[in-house]
């Protein structure tokens, strides 16, 4: 039986080689595919670091702006955004996402606080005569946006996340009744399961505006007499 043993063994060896190199190539592909998961953690770390740096810098900007305002040499452009921290009586509203489990066929989207909800709330507060408003320590200026940014909300170009604490200086009871009127914003939000906590405060502080104060297009108009 010595004759011809090489050929069968060779055919098996060809299969072996083909399997080996194919497996080798495939494993290299998997290794490359696994890479992004490790890198996303690095990116998250970098994002956190950059955000804390940004927070520190924006605090510094606020301080410097305060410092610059005090000597009394403000021009009209800065006046536009001169919004120092204010304190007084007012109202504090805390919005938290619904904790009710979403039922079958229900859209989980309705259980979270959206930018529209905050926008309506702020609008309601302004209509009721609030003099200064902040959301999660972001002061509402005339240029402040309340925009949807994925799972977070963008206010003054900063991301904020629930729970949302809205502070408004004004007549506390008046503000509360404006929000709590029948068919009003609180009833609307609670209908969707969002937890709304309203507290009238004797004393609360609304922080200074920390966003950009530079006007690139707008100029003070010439006064016509």
């Amino acid at each position: 039986m010595k004759k011809g043993w090489e050929l069968p063994v060779m055919s098996i060896t060809v299969i072996l080689g083909a399997l080996l190199s194919t497996q080798f190539r495939s494993q290299a592909v998997f290794a490359r595919q696994d890479l992004p998961s490790r890198r996303s953690e690095d990116l998250l770390q970098m994002l956190k670091q950059a955000e804390s740096e940004k927070d520190a810098l924006s605090r510094e900007v606020t301080q410097l702006r305060e410092l610059r305002r005090n000597p009394g040499q403000t021009d009209a452009r800065q006046q536009q955004h001169a919004m120092p921290a204010l304190e007084g009586p007012g109202i504090e509203v805390v919005l938290t996402d619904s904790e009710k489990p979403t039922g079958k066929g229900e859209d989980p989207n309705i259980a979270i606080v959206h930018n529209d909800d905050l926008l309506r709330l702020v609008n309601e507060l302004r209509s009721a005569g609030a003099e200064a408003i902040s959301i999660n320590d972001q002061r509402m200026a005339d240029s402040s946006e309340i925009a949807c940014a994925g799972t977070t909300i963008l206010v003054n170009k900063s991301r904020i996340a629930p729970p949302f604490t809205v502070r408004a200086i004004g007549g506390g009871e008046g503000l509360r009744s404006a929000l709590g009127m029948r068919g009003g914003i609180i009833e609307y939000l609670r209908f969707y399961g969002i937890q709304v906590d309203v507290r009238v405060r004797e004393q609360l502080t609304v922080p200074a505006y920390s966003g950009s104060a530079i006007l690139r297009f707008a100029r003070p108009a010439r006064e016509r007499s």
């Binding site: 060779m10 072996l16 080689g17 194919t22």
Partner: peptide, 20 residues
């Protein structure tokens, strides 16, 4: 001969458009 067959198989697998 058998080493040559192994090499041929490896080349075949390396250039075959198959991933596992």
């Amino acid at each position: 001969l058998i080493a040559g067959a192994l090499l041929a198989g490896i080349l075949l697998g390396a250039y075959a458009p198959i991933t596992i």
